[in-house]
């Protein structure tokens, strides 16, 4: 119970409102689907999904779609790994520069103390 009190105290009005809204949207969408928003049409109603294309029976017909999926997936992974490694390198450089600056400042402070 202490945890819930702590959570409520820490979150405040604005966060509580956001959380309630998100919970409300999720609940309403779940209820809508439960009462049949997705399958509310009678079984005899025509499907909203058209028949497969005329080339569906040709095993090679959809090769460009397969190619597109693999290219997009691999492209996304490579781009993300490239972004991570570049960002890591940049941050490491910045960390090293800051450490050097701090080191120089500490040395200067130590020197001024020894002189005084």
């Amino acid at each position: 119970m202490n945890f819930i009190k702590e959570l409520r105290r820490g979150l405040g009005l604005r966060a509580s409102t956001v959380i309630v809204l998100v919970a409300l949207v999720l609940t309403v969408s779940t209820l809508l689907t439960t009462v049949g928003a997705f399958d509310g049409q009678p079984q005899t109603a025509p499907s909203t999904i058209p028949e497969p294309s005329e080339h569906a029976n040709d095993p090679e017909a959809n090769l460009p779609f397969l190619f597109a999926v693999y290219m997009i997936t691999w492209g996304a992974f490579f781009a993300y790994i490239f972004y991570l490694s570049r960002r890591q390198r940049e941050m490491q450089g910045e960390i090293d520069a800051l450490k050097r600056a701090l080191d120089q400042r500490e040395q200067a402070e130590a020197q001024s103390q020894s002189e005084s």
Binding site: F38, I49, P50, P52, H55, F65, V69, I72
Partner: peptide, 19 residues
């Protein structure tokens, strides 16, 4: 994205409001 690309040749649409 991969679902939409797969749906196009199989269902004939890129997207449907399926659950």
């Amino acid at each position: 994205v991969t679902g939409a690309i797969w749906a196009r040749p199989v269902w004939g649409v890129w997207w449907t409001w399926d659950a």
